[in-house]
């Protein structure tokens, strides 16, 4: 698959014709991207800090995980949609930006980790899971999403 061809296509797509022509629309989408990122971060923090026994100790961790997962997915959808729109405005520039690729790699890993490891594992009764496994998964999850967000911020600086 030719990755560069995809960025060239995105650069001239109808999305790009909106995102490049209307700075105001771009800025508003960017705000929603940020708000969704914060919501996702809040859900990750609440869930993982509960698994670590820092927050909400008097609420069963199964309940906390169930509710945070739902809003996590909502936020992720908003993030992906707004992210693709924002990328279309600077597609070629992003292709040559190493932080963008750091972000894509960590994002792909993050999505894989959440939906194939963390979620299936936490479907089991938490008391039957080794507490150290739970702690490791919680720290790894927070770390991954931190790297995704931090590399995203750094795309703008580089």
């Amino acid at each position: 698959m030719d990755v560069f061809a995809f960025f060239q296509w995105l650069d001239t797509s109808w999305l790009a014709s909106i995102s490049k022509a209307y700075g105001g629309v771009f800025a508003v989408v960017q705000v929603f991207h940020l708000l969704a990122m914060l919501t996702l971060g809040g859900m990750v923090l609440t869930g993982d800090l509960r698994l670590l026994g820092v927050l909400l100790k008097d609420v069963p961790s199964e309940v906390v995980i169930e509710h945070t997962q739902k809003w996590f997915s909502v936020a992720l959808v908003v993030l992906l949609a707004s992210g693709i729109f924002m990328s279309s405005a600077v597609a070629i520039k992003l292709y040559y930006n190493s932080f963008f690729w750091a972000k894509m790699a960590s994002l792909a890993f993050g999505i894989f980790f959440v939906y194939t490891i963390r979620r299936p594992l936490l479907r089991y009764d938490h008391s039957t899971i080794n507490p150290w496994t739970l702690r490791l998964v919680a720290v790894a999850s927070m770390t991954t999403w931190f790297v995704v967000a931090a590399s995203g911020r750094w795309i703008g600086f580089s």
């Binding site: 890993f109 980790f113 490891i117 963390r118 594992l121 899971i129 080794n130 150290w132 496994t133 490791l136 998964v137 720290v139 790894a140 999850s141 770390t143 991954t144």
Partner: peptide, 12 residues
Amino acid sequence: EKIAAGLSLVVI
């Protein structure tokens, strides 16, 4: 559980 723990360790 084993995969989760191993992978998490690698990430950290």
